[in-house]
Design a protein around this nucleic acid. Structure first.
Lengths: 209, 209
DNA sequence: TCTTGATGTTTATGGTGTTAACATGAACGT
DNA sequence: ACGTTCATGTTAACACCATAAACATCAAGA
């Protein structure tokens, strides 16, 4: 919402109310668009994001967004990246809040599911977008990097308990479990119940408990 | 809007869309549309289904489809139902092919993942559609019923091995696991490897093995 | 001051799902 | 045989969408 360019301070304060003052330029349309998109995707389950509608909400012309995003897909990619980082932050914080280790691992899983349930559209957006990214090519996208860090966090938190040869399988097992559970919940197949989630997630014991 | 003068125009127009047989009516447009839709969704990963394009393929006018489906969503629902039944059939056959029991249970899981990987768009379609169905209302849709039977098949196959109080949790655990794994694969996060899948799926042992 | 580049606007093009009015042909009662 | 009915098809039109092209506006540097 703020003006990114700080070189101007006094008189430009009036630009903070672009619509009211009838200013021609918006100030920082890109971040405003992302913020608005995140808000729209934040709570709703099946939001329809149209450039025209979004621009209307921002008090701006529809085609103005093309100055900041080459096309609609790029905007959605930006939103997905933002969401992915947000999820990663929540998860890291959750693991740290209980001191890491085995308990932290379980907490990460529960947090994954809970965050997914609370932000259904964002989760769908993330996996929709990351699926369309060309991973084969040698171009490491920001999206791919964020995802890598997410997985690395999972693996790091569990690594002490699991025998090395089982680690890869166990990581995939855990990820599949929480991801599948989250998907089933937000697709309406399973009702959201925190206790049940913790039970389902923590029932897992690989190798030896 | 008097269009009576266009009667000749219409006749000429009907010549403009001559099917091979030259028949005005299609015969069974509904099933043809579903078949065409299934074919389009069958192999592709991110198919775009447009009513106009679909109608064009069927040699029929775009709005003709509205005689058989109230809207596009209804068509997609029909496709999802078809896909769901197909998946259920495969799974039941897989469980039966190894004589049921614990082994049949594992086979069902593997089949679930494999079918999902081989028909990515159909899986997405299923869960997209079933999520939008109003389950709270007392109207049991065909979709909901098909899904119920799917779950019943899972539970029935495993029931012998699991203690009753764990059965619900175990069912959800198993379903989450295979569903999550399938989703991760067809979202490009995990490469498809049959051996790996069997390993990840069969690592689970609830209660006691 | 003049030019320039980033940003936003207007206009236009071709796509979509959907509705309304009309056409066709087969089945059926007379 | 004839006329009515009804499911099924047709065209035309509407509102919405993403996107491209040409033009307008402003901030800032030469």
């Amino acid at each position: 919402m703020n003006v990114k360019d700080n070189s101007v301070n006094i008189k430009e304060a009036s630009k903070n109310t672009p619509k009211d003052s009838g200013a021609y330029h918006h100030g920082d349309l890109r971040t405003a668009a992302i913020a608005a998109g995140m808000e729209k995707f934040g709570g709703q389950n099946h939001p329809e994001l149209g450039l025209r509608a979004l621009a209307r909400e921002l008090g701006v012309s529809a085609t103005a967004l093309y100055r900041h995003f080459p096309n609609k897909d790029a905007l959605l990619d930006a939103l997905a990246l933002e969401a992915l980082n947000q999820l990663g932050a929540h998860q890291a914080q959750a693991a740290q809040s209980v001191g890491g280790g085995r308990e932290g691992f379980g907490e990460m899983g529960v947090t994954y599911v809970r965050w997914a349930v609370e932000h259904p559209a964002l989760v769908r957006l993330i996996y929709d977008r990351v699926g369309k990214v060309d991973l084969a090519a040698g171009n490491p996208t920001k999206m791919g990097e964020a995802f890598y860090q997410l997985r690395a966090g999972i693996a790091a938190t569990m690594s002490e308990d699991i025998s090395p040869e089982h680690r890869a399988t166990a990581t995939l097992h855990a990820w599949s479990l929480v991801h599948g559970l989250a998907m089933l919940i937000l697709d309406g197949q399973v009702e959201y119940d925190p206790d049940m989630i913790r039970k389902v997630v923590t029932i897992t014991d690989f190798g030896r408990d």
